[in-house]
Nucleic acid binder design. Sequence first.
DNA 1: ATGCCGGGCGAAGCCCGA
Length: 265
Amino acid sequence: MRIATWNVNSVRARLPNVLQWLSERTPDVLLLQEIKTTAENFPTLEFEDLGYNCLVAGQKSYNGVAILSKYPLEDIREHLPGDDADDQARYVEAWIDAGSSGVRVASIYLPNGNPIDSPKYPYKLLWMDRLQSHAAHLLTNEEAIVLGGDYNVVPSDGDVHDPEAWANDALCRPETRARFRAILYLGYTEAFRALNKEIGRYTFWDYQGRAFESDRGLRIDHFLLSPQAADRLKSCEIDLVPRGRPKASDHTPVWCELTNSSMVL
DNA sequence: ATGCCGGGCGAAGCCCGA
């Protein structure tokens, strides 16, 4: 079971890039963020032509998340619990019905939170508190869970090209990192870091100032795995190729591979 | 590099992202 996550910065503007990448890499599941459109304007037919079922939690102009899956999507949730008044489309969850390879996945677009002296920062922190609560609730089912997406969290100083310059940014602030760790302390495993100790590996590079060419980036797109999923974790990689292509998103895809549950020791 | 890109909206210029 190969699961990928990609903040595409508009699914309609990025459609040729996403279709090309899906054709080349053929993941079983792709978690999309920042689709910037509604479900009715989502390019469902184009993805179905490649064999994917689509689940979309959309919004006009901003935000928006989706799950593409070669397997049926069951037990759907399209809103992060904890604040019914929150109308930003940043969370969608489903059970991937793939027999012994089955897994619950969520596509997460965690709020950016900048600037930190604006209401956006407390919104981010409260959103993270809600995510922690829901992540804790999900663990009670004792199933394989992969919470993937754009967390807008730089977990450690080794995950940003210039830690000093970014120290007071909402992606790096101690309150942000503490909430990210709080989810790990529940029993979740951050897949890339669990398998790769190398620092300076990034998933986002700004469009400006030739940031990608000079590798001035951030690692902010993550997979958090429940114990049952972590036991099946085989690999986790950042695919740099799409970021270097014409009309690229400012994020590049990350993917992880899980064995099926019958292969767990 | 607190927006110098790039996208949405909508038809110019502003809002937004990290």
